[in-house]
């Protein structure tokens, strides 16, 4: 075990077309840690995750993953280093069945990261097991969200970038999602999860970083954020 964090982001900037969305984001995720990236709609949470993953045309700053600079790599190379990305808008392959969606995500086993097979994932997400042959387009939003997560896990990532997993889901599904994330953490997976829902974040995360208008404004243990009403008012609430 090294003392070096698993993911370290320094001065990350990103643009969407001409809009300068991130003006300098600094983030750290340690091994085995779950970090919540909090912030209001439009604060830059999704952009941060996409920029880390190399999915934006224009970005600047440094992203170090597992000791390697990945800031100039294309997404598929970053993914093959063990960084798993779960998008907010689900983006399941709607023409592909559940099994095929999982197959797309499959990568060889990786040292230092849990190894996933379809059977292990079906055990974790029993819903999916019942619909292996169903096409992604014929699933409900909650089922799609589970599938997207399972699909990324097939790549045996050591760090998961999870974009707003609770958004638009019914409370019961949100509960299942939180359980799943805790189970993943128990497996030793590190997670960076972007979230608006404080209750959800509090249920899964060790630490929080609060982003507002393209920069990190608060960084500290989840507990501190829960107790610090001023920060909550300033960056999260009304």
């Amino acid at each position: 075990m090294t003392t070096q964090p698993l993911l370290s982001v320094r001065g990350l900037q990103a643009w969407y077309g001409r809009a300068h969305i991130l003006t300098g984001v600094d983030l750290v995720v340690g091994r085995g840690e779950v970090v919540a990236l909090m912030g209001r709609n439009g604060a830059g949470k999704t952009t941060t995750l996409k920029a880390i993953m190399g999915l934006l045309d224009r970005r600047a700053g440094s992203v170090t993953f597992d000791g390697r600079d990945v800031s100039a790599l294309p997404p598929h190379r970053i993914a093959r280093l063990g960084l798993g990305y779960v998008p907010e808008d689900r983006r399941v392959f709607t023409d592909l069945t559940v099994e095929e969606n999982l197959e797309v995500g499959r990568q060889p086993p990786r040292d230092g990261a849990p190894h996933w097979t379809p059977d292990r994932l079906y055990a974790l997400f029993p819903n999916l097991a019942e619909m292996r042959g169903r096409r992604g387009g014929r699933m409900s939003g909650g089922e799609q969200q589970m599938l997207t997560l399972a699909r990324t896990l097939m790549g045996n990532p050591s760090l998961l970038l999870l974009d707003e997993p609770s958004e638009g889901l019914a409370p019961r599904i949100v509960q299942q999602m939180a359980d799943a994330l805790r189970a993943l953490k128990a497996e030793g997976l590190s997670i960076l999860v972007s979230e608006q829902n404080l209750a959800f974040a509090a249920a899964v995360a060790d630490r929080a970083s609060v982003i507002e208008k393209g920069q990190i404004r608060f960084e500290g243990p989840m507990r501190t954020l829960l107790e610090d009403e001023a920060v909550r008012r300033a960056y999260l609430a009304v």
Partner: peptide, 16 residues
């Protein structure tokens, strides 16, 4: 088929 539907997503899953 995955890349046909969503090239970026496939690439984020490690497909070249």
């Amino acid at each position: 088929r995955a890349a046909t539907q969503d090239r970026d997503m496939a690439s984020a899953l490690g497909v070249d």
